[in-house]
Nucleic acid binder design. Structure first.
Lengths: 208, 208
DNA sequence: GATGAGTCTGGACAATCGTCAAGATCGATG
DNA sequence: CATCGATCTTGACGATTGTCCAGACTCATC
């Protein structure tokens, strides 16, 4: 009654491996169809297993989706670390950051619309909140590493809180994603230009 | 075959009135349950009609939802006009704007999470895109009336494009909504403070 | 009061959903 | 080869979905 799953035996390697395989298929399906139209059968169809196996590895639909969210996080958390580590000037960091934003928006648009979908679903479904808020915090931390490093390279303290910096940048990113997915050819590059304009405003006493 | 609905007869008053009644019930239900879990039967249950009547006034689910989106727009478009018209100083406008944001976030949280839900759904569902992009543009215009009036009262030109201003403010608003709905007691007031900080950065050569 | 167009009800349909369980298959151990 | 737990397939269940329809109701008009 208490606990998530007690069936895992000694060779838990394969058990976790299968869970990750299913999470991979689930993420692909969710990114394609969205939360509302994704069924467990469709997820299984996009894997090499039958639909019954899903309930062998996950108690119910929510456990699978929440596992997916956490699994997805592991990929994102370090995505921008090289930008922070390799930059030595504020302009260089800003260019690298914007380029990385453009790249990730172009290459992983389905995954990002899924993230926004799940985050919005958490406004309605309590069960998703814990996992979603955890990722949201992780993303905020990631953005803050960029902004604080940028401020450091500028030799000035940041002018915003971590949450505020994440909020405004995430707004621009989501706007660009919507534009990109709805046919606006210049949405991605426009976002890059706006990030270039906005970033200097995030350190105190903005200078040219 | 072509056209949306040709059944409406002479007394089209009642016809439109019923459609609006159903849209009202649909918006209430969607705001409560979200797009994914809202069924036509549940919408009818929240109205004074039976579930069959929905298909008498709307061809299918999408026509109802799209009608709801446009119906919803009519309420929002003028919400901040008084803020623009009644303000005579930048500080006064900023205070009134932030207060209105706080008020609308507190009083109509379900309606706003529905908006973000539908906007995200439009990333997956083509049928929703036209209506969603239309509202998004309307909201951008609304925000721009605020920002440009603020800049005018400051005696300086705006430092951002309309889309950029909308993107960053919408990001902060969505962040506050998520926090508000997930139990962060100070999310709303924190947003108001951040809007106060951000707004001066939206006009050229930020001054204290 | 009879007529008929407009409106509404309630039941039915096929499709799909999450969930579950009985049995087949696999693979290591004896 | 026989055994047994782990893994997987397959079919089924009850519930819910969007959609449709036959018939009942409403009400102005003749």
């Amino acid at each position: 009654m208490a606990g998530t799953k007690e069936a895992r035996r000694a060779p838990s390697d394969k058990y976790d491996e299968r869970r990750n395989q299913l999470a991979e298929s689930a993420l692909q399906t969710l990114g394609e169809l969205g939360y509302a139209r994704t069924s467990l059968r469709e997820i299984a169809n996009n894997s090499e297993f039958s639909h019954g196996v899903v309930h062998y590895y996950f108690a119910d639909k929510f456990e699978l989706i929440i596992y997916c969210v956490r699994y997805y996080k592991a990929r994102c958390v370090t995505r921008y670390d090289s930008v922070v580590d390799d930059s030595t000037t504020p302009e260089g960091l800003l260019d690298a950051f914007a380029a990385k934003l453009v790249e990730t928006l172009r290459d992983e648009a389905p995954m990002h619309r899924l993230w926004y979908d799940l985050r919005t679903q958490s406004m309605f479904e309590e069960k998703l909140r814990e996992a979603v808020l955890m990722i949201d915090q992780t993303l905020e931390d990631m953005i803050w590493r960029i902004v604080s490093k940028y401020a450091e390279l500028c030799g000035r303290p940041p002018a915003m809180t971590p949450a505020a910096a994440y909020g405004v940048l995430d707004g621009l990113f989501q706007q660009a994603l919507l534009g990109h997915l709805t046919g606006a050819a210049d949405a991605v590059d426009t976002m890059a230009a706006r990030v270039h304009e906005l970033m200097p405003l995030m350190v105190t006493s903005a200078a040219a």
